Simulated assay, not measured.
Amino acid sequence: MNASIEAKQGFLLREEQLDIFQQAVRTVIERYKRGGRLYIAGNGGSAADAQHLAAEFVSKLARDRAPLPAEALTVDTSILTAIGNDYGYEQVFSRQIAGKMTDKDVFLGITTSGQSPNILKALETCRQMGIPSVVFAGRDGGLAKAAADYCVVASGEMTSTIQEIHIVLAHTLCECVERAVFEK
């Protein structure tokens, strides 16, 4: 438990990462104000976090409000298995991005290693389509650090600790968007 607490406290001292996170938040807010949507993807526990975050945007986090369009690219088993079978697992998110997203939207990838091949391919597709991309990563950010427009690197070495910081970031992102979009 101490390592988890120390990692969260350590993250709050990393001004560069806090600045990147604030830039990412501003981008998501701007995209929502332009009528865009948030698309989220991850693998394993990060896939569950993608679904969790999409639910917070569509339902609510901290206040009653209109729904915000968000989608986890991890939930449609027919799409996932068709793409995985026909094109390979590395393409399961990038094909969905190419088919669903527009330049009004924003992509959020979640990868504790920063090395997930399907997240990296998704980031490449975003870049080709002119879609801004955010990644929540861990350790040193991996290859995702250079591939994303905004890569927020959680402190900590253990996957569980990195994922805990990712969910704090996700909730903070949603709360910031709620305030900015629905503030009276």
Rank of each mutant, 00 (worst) to 15 (best):
D64H: 13
D64K: 04
D64I: 10
D64W: 06
R65Y: 00
A66E: 15
A66V: 03
P67Q: 12
L68Y: 06
L68M: 14
P69L: 10
A70T: 01
A70W: 00
E71W: 08
A72I: 10
L73A: 01
T77G: 04
S78N: 07
S78R: 07
L80S: 12
L80E: 09
L80G: 12
T81R: 00
I83D: 09
I83M: 02
I83P: 08
G84P: 10
N85K: 01
D86I: 05
Y87W: 13
G88E: 03
Y89T: 02
Y89P: 03
E90P: 07
E90Q: 13
E90A: 12
E90N: 12
V92L: 09
F93Q: 05
S94V: 07
S94M: 08
Q96E: 03
Q96D: 00
Q96R: 04
I97N: 05
A98Y: 11
G99L: 11
K100F: 12
K100V: 05
T102L: 04
D103P: 12
V106M: 08
I110C: 03
T112F: 02
T112D: 00
S113E: 10
S113I: 05
G114E: 00
G114L: 06
Q115R: 15
S116V: 11
S116G: 11
S116M: 04
S116Q: 01
S116L: 06
I119F: 08
L120K: 12
L120P: 10
L120G: 07
K121D: 14
K121I: 09
K121Y: 10
K121E: 15
A122I: 05
T125M: 15
T125S: 14
Q128K: 15
Q128P: 04
M129Y: 08
M129E: 03
G130L: 07
P132S: 05
V134P: 13
V134S: 14
V135G: 07
V135F: 08
F136S: 01
F136Q: 00
D140W: 11
D140K: 14
G141L: 11
G142N: 11
G142F: 13
A144H: 06
A144T: 07
